Amino acid sequence: MQVSKRTLASLALVAAMVAVSVLLYDRLPEQLATHWNADNAVDDTMPRAVGLALFPALGLLLVGLFALVPRIDPLGENIDEFRAAYDLMVVTTVGLLAYVQGLVIWWNLGNEFAVSAAIAPAVAAVYVVAGYVVERAERNWFVGFRTPWTLSDDRVWERTHSRGGRLLKVAGVLAALGVVFPEYAIALLVAPVLLVAVYTTVFSYREYRRLNRSNAG
Rank of each mutant, 00 (worst) to 15 (best):
H161K: 09
A84V: 14
A85W: 10
L188H: 07
A216Y: 05
V104I: 15
S4H: 09
F55S: 09
S21P: 13
T45A: 11
G110Y: 10
V134N: 04
V202Y: 10
Q2I: 12
T92C: 00
L52C: 12
N212S: 14
G51N: 12
S152V: 06
T150F: 00
A15T: 04
H35S: 10
P121I: 02
W157M: 07
S214R: 15
A187C: 04
W36F: 15
N78C: 01
N40C: 05
W141D: 03
F113T: 05
S10R: 00
S162G: 15
V198F: 09
R166N: 12
L62G: 09
G164N: 08
L62D: 08
A114K: 15
Y25Q: 11
V196A: 01
P182I: 11
G59N: 07
D153E: 14
E183D: 15
A117Y: 10
N111T: 11
Q31K: 06
L23R: 12
I79Y: 03
V123I: 01
T45Y: 13
I186W: 08
A125R: 03
K5Q: 02
V50Y: 01
G76Y: 02
W36I: 03
W106P: 06
G102H: 04
K169F: 08
V115D: 06
G102E: 02
Y127N: 06
E183V: 09
A137E: 10
R155S: 01
L8H: 08
L8C: 08
T150Y: 00
G51I: 06
L62R: 10
L65A: 09
A185M: 02
L96R: 11
V193Q: 13
L103E: 06
A15M: 08
G51W: 04
F145D: 12
V14T: 00
K5Y: 06
N140K: 03
V115Q: 03
A15I: 06
M17Q: 06
V123M: 05
A191K: 03
I105R: 12
I79Q: 03
G64W: 07
L189Y: 00
Y184A: 15
V69K: 03
H35N: 04
G217P: 05
N215F: 09
V126C: 11
Y199T: 08
L32K: 14
A130E: 07
L177F: 01
V91T: 13
E207F: 03
D80W: 02
V115P: 01
V134A: 02
T200F: 10
E30L: 00
R139L: 04
V100C: 13
F145P: 03
E81M: 07
A19N: 02
R210V: 07
A41V: 15
E138A: 14
V91L: 15
L23G: 09
G164V: 00
L68N: 11
A16N: 03
F145V: 04
R146F: 09
W106C: 04
R139W: 08
